[in-house]
């Protein structure tokens, strides 16, 4: 998902930066508001940021014979809604652009748009739709976390296709080419990431029940919660 430094034409780099900036600024306000109004959220907010920090640092092998990064933006989007992840995700990207030469400053806007805006919103949307369809928390978490991962890479493919349309196949041809590199490799990673999200929420439903109820992820239990009674 990291478009390397200098690899987007200047106009595209600027355009994506302008597109991502309001989301990131809004996200920063959302984080400050959350911490100020609900100081008890700080712990879980830290967990959401830490989850994306760990997962985006790890390169995982895939069935295609290449490797790629998970994103880890799904759980934060589900817990705190997507704007919060616009800031946290961009912080991760900035860390990687400055210290790891992974991604870049000129491509930060485009990468943030894919990783910190589209991914979290797509994941959150999938989570809400799955729940609205009557599914329990954990299936919805799986759908949300996996889709946040996959949507990020689809967006990156689209960004690259817009910048580098295929001479013969045009935009669609280029999109197919970049999706071929990114999306197929990403499918097993998205499944693995979805499972890790489920694991995280299994731990949280037992240990952070008051927070999950306040955030609206769990309905307040009328009787005392029994461990294992949540699914």
């Amino acid at each position: 998902m990291h478009i390397a430094e200098g690899f987007l034409p200047a106009g595209h780099a600027l355009g994506w930066t302008i597109a991502a900036a309001p989301f990131v600024a809004h996200g920063a306000r959302a984080v400050v508001k959350e911490v100020r109004e609900n100081p008890e959220s700080t712990l879980l907010l830290g967990a959401a940021g830490a989850f994306t920090f760990v997962l985006s640092a790890i390169k995982l092998p895939s069935v295609t014979g290449s490797s790629s990064h998970p994103t880890g933006t799904g759980p934060g989007a589900i817990l705190f809604r997507p704007p919060v992840m616009a800031l946290l995700g961009t912080v991760v990207l900035l860390f990687q652009a400055l210290l790891l030469a992974h991604g870049g400053l000129t491509t930060l806007g485009a990468n943030a748009f894919a990783f910190a805006v589209v991914g979290p919103w797509a994941g959150y949307g999938a989570y809400r739709l799955t729940r609205a369809a009557g599914a329990g928390l954990l299936p919805a978490v799986f759908a949300g976390v996996a889709l946040a991962d996959l949507a990020t890479y689809v967006t990156t493919s689209l960004q690259l296709a817009l910048a580098f349309p295929d001479p013969a196949g045009g935009l669609a041809g280029a999109l197919a080419k970049f999706l071929g590199v990114f999306a197929v490799t990403q499918i097993p990673l998205a499944i693995g990431e979805g499972l890790l999200g489920v694991l995280l929420f299994r731990v949280l439903t037992v240990n952070a029940r008051p927070e999950l109820e306040r955030l609206g992820v769990l309905r307040p239990a009328p009787v005392a919660a029994t461990p294992g009674g949540v699914a």
Binding site: M1, H2, I3, A4, E5, G6, F7, P9, A10, K59, P61, G65, S66, S67, S68, H69, A97, L98, A101, H102, G104, L105, T106, L160, F164, F178, V181, F182, T185, Q186
Partner: peptide, 26 residues
């Protein structure tokens, strides 16, 4: 398999097509 990163695969492809990055990592 080499398990090369997908990010690097794309940059290699673009460079092979004649694209030169206009900015380098600091």
């Amino acid at each position: 398999s080499e398990y090369g990163g997908t990010d690097a695969a794309v940059t290699e492809e673009l460079e092979a097509d004649g694209y030169t990055p206009w900015f380098d990592s600091l």
